[in-house]
């Protein structure tokens, strides 16, 4: 059974259709990258799967539990990093992560051991007792990721997990995702195409609320030439970028929609 499944997901805000009939399934071991221009509906789709928004029609399920009608069971299996990694600025890192763990029903030694493990893995020791508002962007993002991993969930939805990080931090986050990917279903959204090449097993391209492509990064790359005009080999992300531009170009979308 797929750990994440969406069926003909539609979300309208007034006259504007943000998500327009998106269906896909994600299995254990898959890392799906959501790609698309700004405003394409990536974040809205993630909010719908997480159950924060209610779909206009269609449905989303996590571990077989509907995000709306069986929300609590669905959320138990979900770790979610919302857009912009929002956190409570007035709390210390330790208070915040202990709060999230307790809200997820983890107490005593179990919570302590898990948090200790996360602190080491995500390297939060030096900011453990600092207030979140005093942290750098990189640390805030890492606290946001730690918060999503507290209960070691089967499903991870990370909205732009590396946004605002420096290259080293980006690399670390990708390593982290890589290291936990084998027994989870992970969805990340990103603008950065090299990220797709680095961590994703599958890339879904969304524009104007519609799914335009669903394939492996390799398949995507194979749609364009492996060498440039001078015959030099081109890197994967350059090739992905070209395919991405080709698929999501506004002119192309208009003709596709017409």
């Amino acid at each position: 059974m797929a750990l994440v499944e969406t069926r003909a997901l539609v979300k309208r805000f007034g006259a504007f259709t943000a998500v327009d009939g998106i269906s896909f399934a994600v299995n254990r071991g898959e890392v799906v990258g959501f790609l698309g221009p700004n405003g394409a509906g990536k974040s809205t789709t993630m909010k719908l799967i997480a159950g924060f928004l209610e779909p206009t029609s269609g449905s989303a399920a996590i571990g077989g539990h509907d995000s709306q009608t069986d929300a609590i069971a669905a959320r138990r299996q979900l770790g979610y990093l919302p857009e912009g990694a929002p956190l409570y600025p007035d709390m210390t890192v330790s208070d915040f992560l202990e709060f999230v763990a307790a809200m997820r029903g983890m107490t005593g030694a179990k919570a302590r051991d898990r948090l200790a493990e996360l602190v080491e893995r995500i390297e939060l020791a030096e900011v453990w007792d600092r207030r979140i508002e005093a942290l750098s962007k990189g640390f805030k993002r890492r606290v946001g990721i730690a918060q999503a991993l507290v209960h070691d969930p089967d499903v991870l939805i990370l909205d732009e997990p590396t946004d605002g990080l420096d290259p080293n931090q980006k690399h670390e986050v990708r390593e982290l995702i890589h290291s936990i990917a084998a027994n989870k279903a992970i969805i990340i959204s990103t603008h950065i195409l090299e990220e797709v090449e680095a961590v994703c097993t599958r890339a879904i391209i969304i524009a104007r609320g519609k799914m335009l492509s669903d394939s492996t990064p390799e398949e995507l790359m194979s749609r364009t030439a492996a060498t440039d005009a001078q015959g030099k080999p081109r890197s994967g992300s350059v090739r992905l970028e070209e395919v991405f531009r080709d698929i999501t170009h506004p002119k192309k979308l208009e003709t596709a929609g017409a």
């Binding site: 159950g51 919302p82 857009e83 409570y88």
Partner: peptide, 14 residues
């Protein structure tokens, strides 16, 4: 305003 509502409303609590 801060977006934390998304965090707290996706925790498995009523």
């Amino acid at each position: 305003r801060s977006g934390t509502i998304e965090l707290i409303m996706t925790l498995p609590v009523s």
